[in-house]
Structures are given as C-alpha cells and as structure tokens.
Design a protein around this nucleic acid. Structure first.
Lengths: 247, 247
DNA sequence: AAGTGGTCTAGACCACGCG
DNA sequence: GCGTGGTCTAGACCACTTT
C-alpha cells in the first residue's frame, strides 16, 4: 500500500532500489545490476540510470566500484543526517562489552501521551518496550520505545527480551522519514535510579520518531547519563550529508 | 589562497558559484546567469551546468524558478545539516524580544586549550568573546567564542559590543566545513550564575568549529539553560538534507 | 584485455509561469 | 507566446581495476 508517486523516471528508479535496500530484500553486499542492464530494464538511457545510482551513492545507500559494480552498503539504513544509531556497534567501537536487558513490555491501546509521541491520528494498539543498554558494567543508555502495531503487526510476536527492538525494526520495516529531537534534562529520581546516577544529573535525551509509507512506526526516547555521551556532525554547505556518531 | 582543486567540470562550476554565494559577492536574491549562458562561459553543454545548478538547489544555496531564472537563496549560508543558528531570528521567531550583551573581549596568543578547541596546528593570536543572548527578560544562551586572527584579521577592528560575532563572521568569511558537537552538562557555579539557574541544572551545550579554505575560523560554545531548548532534525534516507532548528 | 563507472556532449521535447 | 528550467536520449571517451 505504498504511495508510489513517480514524477520522474530517475526518481522512480531511486524509489525502487531504495525500497529493496531498506526493506532488506537486497542485503548489504548485494550486487546491483550494472547501468546498461538497468537502462534496458527501464527502457531508458544510461545517463538516467547513472543519475539515480549517483544519488544513491551520495546518500551512502550503495557503494560503487569500477569494474566490480554497485553494491548495497554494509551499515545498512544507518546513513543519514543523524544516524539511526546502532547502539550495539557504537558501544563495541568504544572497545567495551555490550549488553542489553529488557525491563518491561506492555501491549495496550494507545494513551493520549502515546498518540502524541507517535503523532497517531487515531487511537490504536501499541507496544511499549523499556530496556537498558550496557557498556561494560555501567548503563550506557535507557531506551523507552513505542511501536505502532497498526504498521508493525509482527511486533506482537516478539518479546524483545534478548535483543533490542531497534535492530529488529530496521530489518523489518523500511523507514522513509525520521525526526530527531535532542535536549538536555536533569534526571528525576526515576531516571537516576535506572541509570545509576545521582538525581539531577544532566542527561542527553534523544527522541526519534520514524515513519514508513504506511504511517508512524516507532517513537523512542534514549536517555544517556551525564556528559559521557555527545553527538558529532560534520558537513559542508553543498554536501549536506552529515556524518554523525555518538562518542 | 584557496586550494581550488577541480577534479570535474561540474564540480568546478559548483565551487565557483558556492564561493560567490558564501563570500557574499552574490547577495541573497542575486540572479545567476541562465544555463545556456553558463554553458557558453564554461564551454560545456547545458547538461553539465544543469547538474551543477541542480546540486546547488538541492543544497538550498540557490532557488530555481521557471521562466525567471536561478536566484541565491534568502537565508544565506544557513542551510545545512545542523544550521548555523542565527540566534536572533531564532528568538524572534518565538515572539520574544531579542537582546545581546557582550561580557568580555580578550585578544591573546592562543593557549593550549585554545589550540585544541580551534584545532590550530601552531600557536597564533586569537580573540575570545563572551556574551549573552536574551529572550525577553531571561538569558537564552551563553556564547563563548574563539576567533582565529590568522584567518580573520579584520576581527581585530571589531569590538562586538552591540552585535554578536556570529552574524559578523558569516558575512565576512565563507565557511567550507563545520562540525557540531552536542552534549548535556550540569551547570557549575560559574555557568549557573551566568545563566541565572541553579547550580547543577542540566544544560544543552552545542560546540561548533568552522573552517574556511584558509584554516580554522572560529570555535563557539553555546550553553542553553535547562530543558528550554531542543534541537530538531528531520530527514529521509535518500535526501539527507536535515532541516534543523532550535525550539 | 575487458568490464565498469565517471563524465561529458549536442541535441530534443515538455511544463511551467511570467509578460 | 516564449524563455526558463526539468528531463531525457544515444551516443562518446576516459580512468580505473580486476581478471
């Protein structure tokens, strides 16, 4: 039920390929047909295909190697202004042991707050999952997530005990739009206990909403204790491809 | 003394136009020559010019209108992954009165900390400007800025008493690269007093480094009190042009 | 040596919107 | 109406890299 508007041909090609990549149909490393074959498939010139593939390469969804071909990029679906963080690899890149524990999982009809967080137009069933990510012995961040069952019904069959919902979601649902909100808050007693810090400790909070073609997918609030965490983004005016990462 | 590498022709065109825009030579609203004229000027085909202009339009540096032509975008040099915030318009867009006061201005040879903040390879003269931005009666944020006099010698003649250094810099120096670092810290007694909050209050800190072709331009640390401020960015996978703004 | 992407050309047709 | 950008074509040559 995707609303596939295709105003231009090269945009249609981009949409098709992006769909295959983000949905996981084409896994990382998958080789994409070469430009001449694609041109034949779409009954267009090579230039048109090249325009589409160049744009996908600039967005870091594919990698192009001469003589070899074009391949789906390895860190799939995680290239954007502010990356959809894979916390596990983030922790491991710091040389620390990664761990995850689920604190709770509740299925319910959406409350008013849920609807506001997900920007749901109507009430519906949601799953709330709360868990902690660990870096070595300490808590790395607290995750509070809402999943919209209307868009992701398969989530009903997942308990999210051993693995965080994030990676499962990105491999099951292709997202088309994401929004980050970043702020700083002092930990109240509830968060302080969960994170193992003193009440009032400054925490970096990242809230992310994600949409697919079918509507709101998920809302997640990641709370990082203290000043142990920072976001970095570097860019130039005409190449607004922010490379961002947690520290 | 700009290192003008031009590997491809359309990149050369982009560089030229971007230079004219970011340096202010072409002010907002300036009409750019049409594609045919540019093609003649660069002795290339219209496609090549089109590729360059399309890319600049996607980066929001120019706006293209049929029949009329291409024009330099209004909010100049402030379109990027994380915008180079114009705090004044940010405050005013909230319907609040904007104010600015300079607290101090010091010219000195760079300290070790200065060199680290600016990523200076060698010691040199810098200016440190500290000031406060007000929204209505309250402090909106504290600004601590270093300016590299080797790259911006004209800054020596500015006292930055009535106007913040940020707008002056963006209108005098075209920046080519910027890096943001975002974190959350608890206010120590010094910051607490400056911001008018209780010690320990969580603050959002945004540190930005900016470079031009000639080297490091400036380093600024903006400290926003409490959870009154948040950053927002929205994007899609194949269009990583994050629109971000303060709240 | 051969296949691939990178770039460019010299045209073309169309839609839009200003005059 | 007509100038502009938007898109596309059917070629071409080159650089690179793997075989």
């Amino acid at each position: 039920m995707r609303a596939n508007k295709a105003p231009t041909l090269h945009q249609q090609i981009i949409n098709d390929i992006e769909g295959n990549i983000l949905s996981g149909t084409w896994p990382p490393g998958h080789r994409i047909a070469n430009e001449m074959d694609l041109a034949q498939h779409y009954s267009c010139s090579r230039m048109t295909v090249n325009k589409a593939l160049s744009q996908l390469a600039k967005a870091n969804l594919i990698e192009r190697r001469k003589k070899s071909g074009s391949f789906v990029t390895q860190p799939q679906a995680q290239s954007a202004v502010l990356e959809i963080h894979d916390i596990k690899s983030e922790v491991q890149s710091l040389g620390l042991h990664y761990g995850y524990t689920r604190a709770s999982r509740v299925e319910r009809t959406s409350t008013t707050i849920d609807m506001k967080n997900l920007e749901l137009p109507d009430a519906g069933n949601v799953i709330e999952v709360i868990g902690k990510h660990y870096a070595g012995p300490g808590v790395f961040c607290l995750e509070e997530r809402l999943i919209n069952l209307a868009v992701v019904p398969d989530a009903r069959d997942e308990d999210f005990v051993d693995a965080a919902p994030g990676p499962w979601l990105t491999s099951h649902i292709p997202w088309t739009t994401a929004e980050h909100l970043i702020k700083s808050v002092g930990a109240n007693s509830h968060y302080a206990e969960a994170l193992g810090v003193n009440p009032g400790t400054a925490c970096l909070v990242i809230e992310r909403r994600t949409w697919s073609h079918n509507g709101p997918v998920t809302h997640v609030r990641l709370t990082y204790p203290g000043d142990r965490h920072a976001l970095v983004a570097r860019f130039t005016p005409s190449d607004p491809t922010g490379k961002s990462s947690g520290i």
